[in-house]
């Protein structure tokens, strides 16, 4: 668990981060978003003490961060950055094995771990273990970066725009893989990004920052439904907000059981998002879809009227609450 309480950071006279209070429960995925220079990276680096905070308290598993030896602390925290920061003079295997080596694991154990991680991140050992960073594509280098951060099995992972420099397709692929990995490993992740869709897709907890302060935090859905001010609203996509919200909602949560009427032609799997369902309706010029399970067997239906109405109900119930 990571806890920041009234944390500030000053560089000389400049205030980079001001009075931040943030709790990230164990196993949660927290995304920091905000315009450039608002203090996201600084916040991240204060957690592994690359930057010492000026005031306030940071706790890690209930213990103040100053009480840890910074070097040992960093070895317990995985860190991934946009430029990967791989060591150009070491091959992939050596890069990944760095922290275990620093922790003096036995050589055989390091090898096993490196090969295991390369498998997990889709880097065939035979092909990549002996390549050097400059021989890798951006996506491959980023996988190595993630593998290196995971090597010593840290509880906490700090990721600073890890997929920022990748093309949209590679980025989406890596996002999906990260989501899968997280579902399995349950790390506590703090993730900085400029890509709002990425944040909404991956995060359990979304933190919006502006000029060193936290403007609003909560679940992605809560922020989409009730942005605190116009800044958060525009950051979350302005008019597109409805669609972004739909992207977070599963079809199966809005389907009704198969009615007596003739089933609709277009079919959609139950675990697709509402956004994809809306897109399909627009494409196929229909207002009803048949929902199917993994075996393509119809299990319900989805109607446009219902989606719109339920969205309205959600809003009303939230206002009352």
């Amino acid at each position: 668990m990571i806890e920041l309480s009234h944390v500030s950071k000053q560089f000389g006279d400049d205030i980079a981060v001001e009075d931040i209070t943030l709790r990230i429960a164990k196993g949660k995925f927290c995304a920091l978003v905000g315009t450039s220079g608002c203090g996201k990276s600084t916040t991240l680096r204060m957690i592994n003490r690359l930057i010492e905070h000026s005031s306030g308290d940071i706790f890690l598993d209930g213990q103040a961060i100053e009480q840890y030896d910074p070097v040992k602390l960093r070895r317990r925290i995985g860190y991934v950055i946009q430029s990967t920061g791989l060591f150009p003079h070491w091959n992939v295997a050596r890069n990944i094995g760095l922290v275990p080596r620093l922790l003096k694991w036995p050589a055989t154990e390091i090898n096993t771990r490196v090969e295991e991680l390369m498998g997990v991140l889709g880097l065939p050992v035979g092909e990549f273990a002996h390549k050097y960073p400059h021989q890798l594509s951006g996506g491959q280098a980023q996988r190595v970066g993630v593998a290196r951060a995971l090597a010593a099995d840290p509880d906490i992972l700090l990721m600073d725009e890890p997929f920022g420099a990748l093309d949209p397709i590679t980025r989406e692929k890596l996002q999906d893989e990260l989501a899968k990995l997280q579902a399995r490993l349950h790390k506590t992740i703090v993730f900085v990004t400029h890509d709002m869709d990425e944040a909404l897709k991956l995060a359990d907890h979304l933190v919006v920052m502006r000029d060193g302060r936290i403007v609003q935090q909560g679940t992605p859905l809560a922020l989409l439904q009730q942005p605190a001010d116009p800044f958060v609203e525009s950051l979350l996509g302005g008019l597109e907000r409805g669609l972004k919200q739909a992207a977070l909602t599963r079809v199966k949560d809005h389907m009704t059981s198969l009615g007596p009427s003739w089933p609709a032609q277009s079919r959609i799997p139950a675990d697709f998002s509402l956004r994809q369902a809306l897109s399909m309706m627009l494409r196929d010029h229909c207002d009803r879809l048949t929902v199917v399970d993994q075996g393509d067997v119809p299990i319900g239906e989805l109607s446009l009227r219902r989606i719109v109405k339920e969205a309205q109900l959600d809003k009303v119930s939230q206002r009352d609450a």
């Binding site: 690359l50 602390l73 960093r74 860190y79 950055i81 430029s83 791989l86 150009p88 003079h89 620093l102």
Partner: peptide, 24 residues
């Protein structure tokens, strides 16, 4: 950036010098 990464991985000052800065 590379040196910062070395620090973030938990390398000590001497390790950063002899394993990263010097060979590079």
């Amino acid at each position: 950036e590379t040196l910062q990464a070395a620090k973030a991985m938990g390398m000590r000052t001497g390790q950063r010098f002899w394993q990263v800065r010097f060979p590079l």
